[in-house]
Simulated scan of single mutants.
Amino acid sequence: MPSTDSRFTQEQRRALLDLARASIRHGLDHGRPLPVDPETFDPALREPGAAFVTLHRAGQLRGCIGSLEARRPLVEEVSHHAFAAAFHDPRFPPLMRGEYPELDLELSIIGPAQALQFRDEADLLRQVRPGVDGLILEEKGQRATFLPTVWESLPEPADFLAELKRKAGLPADYWSDRIRISRYTTESFQ
């Protein structure tokens, strides 16, 4: 449910969700994301923004692609990431036309990342806010992130961090004084 400090109105959220769905439909028909003219959208949606588009089908993950840093207008991000989640997530085959009506879309607008300072893994785990924080792990040239929604399937901080390490290509019990962790929040809606 939207929080009282939502950045976007219901109309803006609907416009972004409609755009994501239209870009996937355009991808089925033309093999590329829907071209977007930011000037035709609400000014708040033209601002640079970072976002992830997550697709589910029958309650199962079907694709998730996004960016952690705002580099272009939010509407362009949403269009490109919706297309990429449907057709270029390396974990899944490209979306088939028959799957489209069964898709559930979720958008997660990414807030700024904040580097965490910690002495060791236990100190880090005490600082993490389950259900609130998305985490970015960086180590040995590897980088991985989990959105806050991942807490639904990994509610324990130690498990969340262990799986994030695995996603980064590291052993679940890996630790180093050079490991870097940042957190961010999202405004998510479907």
Rank of each mutant, 00 (worst) to 15 (best):
P2M: 13
P2S: 14
T4S: 15
D5E: 15
T9G: 11
Q10T: 11
E11M: 10
Q12N: 09
R13E: 06
R14E: 10
A15F: 14
L16V: 03
L16I: 04
D18Q: 14
L19A: 02
A22I: 02
H26M: 00
G27Y: 01
G27F: 01
G27P: 03
L28V: 08
H30T: 08
R32Q: 13
R32Y: 05
P35N: 07
D37H: 12
D37R: 12
E39R: 12
T40I: 05
F41V: 00
F41Q: 01
D42M: 03
D42H: 10
P43E: 05
A44T: 02
A44Q: 11
R46M: 08
G49R: 01
G49P: 00
G49L: 03
A50K: 04
L55F: 08
R57I: 05
G59T: 06
Q60Y: 07
R62Q: 07
G63S: 06
G63T: 01
G63D: 01
C64N: 01
I65P: 01
L68M: 12
E69S: 15
E69K: 09
A70E: 04
R72S: 13
R72F: 06
P73E: 02
L74M: 11
E76R: 05
E77P: 00
S79C: 04
S79E: 09
S79Y: 05
H80Y: 07
H80C: 12
H81L: 07
A82Q: 10
F83E: 00
A84V: 05
A84Q: 06
D89F: 03
D89R: 04
P90R: 11
P93N: 12
P94R: 08
P94E: 08
P94L: 03
P94M: 03
M96Q: 15
G98Q: 14
G98V: 12
E99D: 15
P101W: 13
P101E: 08
L105R: 06
P112Q: 13
A113P: 09
D120I: 10
D123K: 06
L125R: 05
P130H: 08
G134C: 09
I136V: 15
L137T: 04
E138Q: 15
Q142C: 13
R143H: 05
R143N: 10
T145Y: 02
L147N: 02
L147K: 01
L147Y: 02
T149R: 11
W151S: 02
W151N: 00
W151L: 05
E152D: 14
S153V: 13
L154M: 13
P157G: 12
A158H: 11
D159L: 14
F160W: 03
E163S: 13
E163F: 11
E163I: 08
L164G: 08
K165W: 04
R166M: 11
A168P: 09
G169V: 02
P171D: 12
P171F: 07
P171G: 10
D173C: 06
D173N: 10
R178N: 10
I179E: 11
R183I: 14
T185L: 10
T185P: 00
E187V: 07
S188W: 15
S188Q: 13
S188T: 09
S188D: 08
S188N: 11
F189K: 00
F189D: 00
